[in-house]
């Protein structure tokens, strides 16, 4: 038996208890989702027949399409907003010494500590004052702003790994600071920006409390709120639809993870610590 094969067996054996625990809720989700309506309440592991049509019925019954679209819209736009604000700020933090720099960093650190739950009343008044209530864009704005602290901190430590010499060389060759930034620096920063963007995207994709407060009409609901509304205080809960919706909502992010897993590990390592 080769050494690698031995390692493989040991590694999977050691991981197996954890994997069972991790996979368990997904199994519950999936199995409930494919149970026929009459069998949902029976705690059997296998349904008597696989009701694939739950996935089709779920779509209109849970208003899934619009909620999916809203989630994508909010997650993408808030990420873009956060990046537009934080890339220059992170660049400045990393490349320039200026008075107030330390203060700004501390402000960002502290602002990470506020839970949306703690701020929700104040935030709500802010959104009303801006006239953005029940507008998906209000959520974009709040998520984007909340993400700024994390993205700036992460980006600036990542930027520290990009050598200065290259920009300085460009200046010597007569490029303007702006040109050096766009042509030399940004291409090198793209991996960092990608990783940061993924984090911001996931946080927006999963956020609950703010969306719950700011969005009031079903047309503007994002996925977590939509799914929550199916179980919260209803007189009857259609668990097979809820689970089918949850399962489908999980797939896009799971795919992104599988695809970008390598970059995430590296990006988080550099971004989180420096």
């Amino acid at each position: 038996m080769s050494a690698k094969l031995k390692r493989t067996i040991v590694a999977w054996a050691l991981l197996s208890p954890l994997i069972v625990l991790i996979v368990f809720p997904f199994a519950v989700m999936f199995i409930t989702a494919i149970k026929p309506a009459q069998e949902v309440l029976r705690p059997t592991w296998w349904p008597s027949e696989v009701a694939w049509r739950n996935f089709i019925d779920m779509w209109p019954a849970t208003n899934f399409g619009p909620a999916l679209w809203n989630s994508i819209y909010v997650a993408v736009l808030s990420t873009v907003l956060a990046l537009i604000a934080s890339v220059p700020a992170a660049y400045a933090l990393n490349r320039y010494r200026f008075s107030g720099r330390g203060l700004f960093r501390q402000f960002l650190l502290v602002s990470q500590m506020l839970s949306p739950m703690v701020l929700v009343i104040g935030l709500f008044r802010l959104v009303v004052w801006l006239g953005l209530l029940d507008n998906v864009n209000s959520v974009v704005f709040v998520y984007g702003a909340f993400a700024v602290a994390f993205t700036v901190l992460m980006l600036q430590s990542y930027f520290a790994t990009i050598p200065r010499d290259l920009e300085e060389a460009a200046w010597v060759e007569g490029a303007s600071a702006w040109k050096a930034l766009v042509i030399v620096f940004l291409p090198l920063a793209i991996p960092a920006i990608t990783v940061t963007a993924i984090f911001s995207f996931i946080n927006a994709w999963n956020e609950f409390v703010i969306a719950l407060t700011m969005l009031r009409r079903q047309e503007s609901y994002t996925l977590p709120i939509q799914i929550f509304s199916l179980v919260a205080g209803r007189y009857t809960v259609e668990w097979h639809h809820v689970m089918a919706a949850t399962f489908v909502a999980t797939i896009p992010v799971a795919i992104v993870f599988a695809w970008l897993q390598r970059y995430l590990v590296r990006g988080l390592a550099i971004g989180a610590v420096k």
Partner: peptide
């Protein structure tokens, strides 16, 4: 505006406090 029962009172509270 359809609101889940469990959070109706919360929504009304924030709405009224924000005059919205």
């Amino acid at each position: 505006e359809v609101v889940p029962w469990d959070v109706l009172l919360q929504k009304l509270t924030t709405d009224i406090s924000g005059n919205a």
